[in-house]
Simulated assay, not measured.
Amino acid sequence: MARKTSGSWEWSRTAQTRKSMLQAAREVFAEHGFAEANVAEVVSRAGSSVGSLYHHFGGKTELFLALYEDHQAAHEEASASTVARAKQAGVEDPVDLLIAGTRAYLAGAWERRDLVRLFMDGDGPPGFELLRRTRGREWVRQNAVLLRAGGDALDRFMVAALTSVIGEAAREVATSDTEAEALEVVEAAVNLIRRLDPLTALDPRP
């Protein structure tokens, strides 16, 4: 059996330490919110030290933001890979592709419902709201590309409205009591997207 080199062992240990701290932070922030969360409790649950936390993240704020970025990256990866698979399967209609991405996004909202509740309705460090709004604008831009929308006011409004529908659905999914209830919200969101008929709205010419 091949032995790990010193470099690969250090990388593996660093990655595991970071993962353990993020998991502990997820639990503590979800239970207490940002302001009331205690760094000592995070490192205790992670089986690490305060010094290690500051070494890897820099502090409580940076730890919170790293958790947010990981959460958003998981959303984006799931949606993008699902849309890519749909395209490979021959799906071409932009609305069908948007719905495929929406289903993946909302599945992640249920899987990480504690984080959705934290980041949507909980408190956060200074600058977090700006970061969240910036992410939201980027999400709208990505949906506009997927829907092949133009840049006029009607296009921007319609894409923003659809994105808001998906975001509010994520909030409801995350606060659902059961998975069955969450799935009902997902189907309602999909039906609403279809009823809005974004392609017609984006091109209202006869």
Rank of each mutant, 00 (worst) to 15 (best):
L154Q: 12
G150F: 09
H71S: 04
R148V: 10
A174D: 04
F64T: 02
L63I: 00
S8I: 00
S44V: 08
T134K: 12
R13S: 11
P94F: 12
G33C: 09
L131I: 04
G51Y: 05
P94S: 13
S8K: 05
E77W: 03
S20C: 11
M1V: 09
A73N: 12
G59S: 05
E62C: 05
R171A: 15
A149K: 08
F64K: 10
T17S: 11
V173P: 04
R45D: 01
G33E: 05
R112H: 14
L53V: 05
R85E: 12
R85V: 11
P204I: 10
W9G: 14
T163N: 13
V190T: 08
L53R: 01
Y105V: 03
A144C: 12
S79Q: 14
R171D: 14
F29I: 06
P126S: 07
A25F: 00
E76M: 11
A2P: 09
G90Q: 07
R103A: 12
R148M: 10
E36A: 15
R135G: 01
D155C: 08
D123C: 06
H71D: 05
F34K: 00
R3P: 02
K60R: 13
P206A: 15
R205L: 03
A40R: 06
D155L: 04
S164I: 05
E92D: 15
R45M: 11
H55N: 07
V28I: 13
A2Y: 04
R132P: 03
R148A: 12
G101E: 07
E77F: 00
M158I: 09
A160T: 13
D121F: 15
R3S: 09
L53E: 02
R141S: 12
E41C: 00
P206Y: 14
R194I: 01
H55I: 06
N143R: 13
D114P: 04
R195Q: 15
V173M: 10
G122F: 04
F34M: 03
S164D: 14
A109Q: 06
R133G: 13
F57W: 07
P126R: 08
L183Y: 15
S44M: 11
G90Y: 02
M120G: 09
Q23K: 14
R117H: 03
F128D: 02
A100N: 10
V186T: 08
T102I: 05
Q16W: 04
R3E: 08
L65G: 03
K4S: 15
V95T: 14
R117K: 08
T102K: 07
E179I: 11
L63D: 00
L162D: 05
R133Y: 13
A78G: 01
E31A: 10
G136I: 07
D121E: 13
Q16L: 07
L202I: 04
D177P: 03
E27T: 12
W139Q: 14
L115H: 06
R137N: 15
